[in-house]
Amino acid sequence: MSSAAGPTGRGLPGGAPGWLRRPAARLAAGGRLGLLEASVLVLAGLLLATATVNDLVRQTHVNHRLTADLRTWRAYTRHDYRNLNINQDVRGQSTRDVVCGNTAPGAPKARVQLCLQMMGPVRSGRRSVSGGWYLPPRVENVRRYRYACFGPAAAEHRCPP
């Protein structure tokens, strides 16, 4: 009788591990409050799991785009450099990325850097270059350091006047 009224009688197999059976027993004892808490926990868990998987998929798409950015920079400059710096739109509201790299061989940011602005979808593993600018050595891609803006980047006033 007692076993029938216990956790195994509520759907958990008799061979279920103890740590699974104990919460079920507590749930029975806690009644509606326990059920409510368990429901909220399950819903919260589902939300977090869904958000995690969704973000993982989103990030893989972003990575796919960044790979296309790097490939585009290398094709445009004909420099097969590995240490390139990518700046994404920090607010994530656009897919505009800026890739910067040295104009001559050297340590990262050790030479004058060429920054290219990438826009649009990935086509054949590449993206569209929407102008760009240059940076002196050893500085970050901050507006005040930019010079010689070209293409649409110049029209968008990406460089200081």
Binding site: T52, V53, L56, Q59, T60, V62, N63, T67, L70
Partner: peptide, 12 residues
């Protein structure tokens, strides 16, 4: 799991 995006789509 959230860290594993570079494993699924490496940036290179």
């Amino acid at each position: 799991v959230h860290q594993t995006a570079p494993l699924l789509a490496p940036v290179s």
